[in-house]
Structures are given as C-alpha cells and as structure tokens.
Design a protein around this nucleic acid. Structure first.
Lengths: 135, 135
DNA sequence: GTTAACGTTGACGTTAACGTCAAGGTGGAC
DNA sequence: GTCCACCTTGACGTTAACGTCAACGTTAAC
C-alpha cells in the first residue's frame, strides 16, 4: 500500500525498462513529482502508466493514449470543453466498437481453422482425440 | 465480378498507396502473378490484403499477419504441421480474447466518462438535453 | 509516332517507439 | 570514507512501416 513508487519499482511491476518510462514522460504521458533529482511516482502516475500499456495492447499510439489520459483528468471545465471531450470520447468509442467487431470476426475464423485442423487430424489418425480448447 | 485486379485498383478500393501494396509483397504478405512486368492480383491476393489491413486495425504487425495468412493457406499437411498450426491458432486466440477484454473495459470507461460529461453539462445548463450516443 | 496513363525497380528519407551506451550525481551499508 | 546500487541527463542507434523521388518500360488512344 505504499502509494509512491520509484522508477525501477514500476519498471519491474510492468516488465518494461526505465528508459521506456522516461520516454513516456518525454512524450507528456507522465508527470512524476521529484525528490531532488529523483522521480517519484504517485498512484495516479501508476494508473496513467497502466492506461498507456493497455492502450498499446489494443493498438493505440502513445499520442492517442496521451489524449485519453488528458480526458480522464480534470472534468470540471466549461461546457465547450465538455462537449469537445464528449465528441472525442464518442469517436474513440466508435473506433473501439469497430475494432471489437474485427476481433470477433477473426476469433470466429480462428475457431473455424481449429476445427478444420481437428478434422484433418482425425482423418489422418481416427483414434486420437482433439484437445478441446474452444470457448 | 472481374476476379483479377491491378495494383491501382486495389489501392483505390482500400485507400492505400501502391507503394504500400508493393511493400507488403516485399515482406512476403502477397505474391501476385505477373503479366510481363505487371502485377496481377487474384481474388485470393485481394483477400490476403484484406486480412493484412484488418490485422493492422487490430494492432497486428505485418509479420504476425503474414503468419496468419500462412496458416489460412494449404491445410493438407502432415499431423505434426497441423498440430503446430493448431497451437499457433490457440495462442493467437488467447491473445485476441485478452485484447477483447481490454477493449470492453475501455468501452465501459468511455461510457462512464460520457455520462460524467453529461452530468457536468446538466449542472451547467439544466435545460439542454444530452445527446444519446450510448450503445 | 508520340503522348498520357499506368506500370516497374531502386534508393534514400521519415516517424514512432524505444534500445544502448557514456558520464556522472547520491544516499545508505559497511 | 568508500563502495555499490540506484538514479540522472544526454546522445546516438535501431526497427517497422511506409513516403518520396528518380529514371525508366509499356500500351492504348489519338
């Protein structure tokens, strides 16, 4: 429950290099506090880092993740800002839904290929049982 | 229903440059036939290209897409090959399911942010109606 | 027969996202 | 006080995925 972290602690937790973490700071994705020279990461910084890494896993660029993090933050702006954020949120949501469909389609195709492999294997060796990995 | 395509026809259809298509060939993702010098793309080539582009949308590298395309192809190999393919298929499937969960989580968070924007807007201006974009 | 549209092969440039290495500061353990 | 593990800031290198440009072949239209 120590709610501050060193750079190496975060790098170990998420299995990334310290260089990567510093790089994210260069790009404006993180703004850790300092103790003298040393970087001190808060729980919020850690959360932001998690967001970036999840963003990477789903194919977002660092710039896109930075925008998302920005949207997460202040919240209490004027109406114009809020509408702009809402718009961006909805754009991203539309993109994610499309991506979700792409993934579902590919999963169906992989299921299909798996079945066909099983079929071919059964023909080659009717005694062996297919390993059930589906769903 | 013309089942062959020129490089520019495909580039227009998918809104990519001809350079990109040639690059994919360099990387072994496409192997179009030739009419003299000219590249001739079959329906199968076109399908492979679609797979690559979908792969990109969901964050796959070209190398990963090439592997997937390879798995789609022959089918009638020996048992050892088939088991290897089955294994790769299942690895990819596991990864895609994880990615699917990441996306669903992010979609939920975006929904949440959208609601909070609406709430903040309603406080600022109780008369205006929120634009329903959800689900 | 020449022009315009389309194609070809290099070859070099660019951007994102880090890796790698050098040179040095710093704080606690002994 | 002197290691040593950890941290710092540069600065240059690298890989993937193309963009861009030059120089040239080809073919259907006029």
């Amino acid at each position: 429950m120590s709610d501050v972290y060193s750079i190496s602690a975060l790098s170990q937790e998420f299995d990334i290099t310290t260089r990567t973490i510093r790089f994210y700071e260069e790009k404006g994705l993180l703004q850790p506090a300092r103790d003298g020279q040393r970087r001190i990461y808060s729980a919020a910084d850690r959360t932001a880092l998690k967001l970036v890494l999840r963003g990477k896993r789903i194919g977002l660029s660092l710039e896109e993740s930075r925008d998302l993090i920005q949207m997460y933050k202040p919240g209490g702006d004027n109406a114009e800002q809020l509408l702009l954020v809402k718009d961006k949120v909805n754009q991203r949501r539309t993109a994610l839904k499309a991506q979700l469909n792409d993934i579902k389609t590919m999963l169906r195709e992989l299921d299909h290929m798996d079945s066909r492999c099983d079929a071919a294997l059964t023909v080659a060796n009717p005694m062996a049982k297919a390993t059930g990995t589906k769903s």
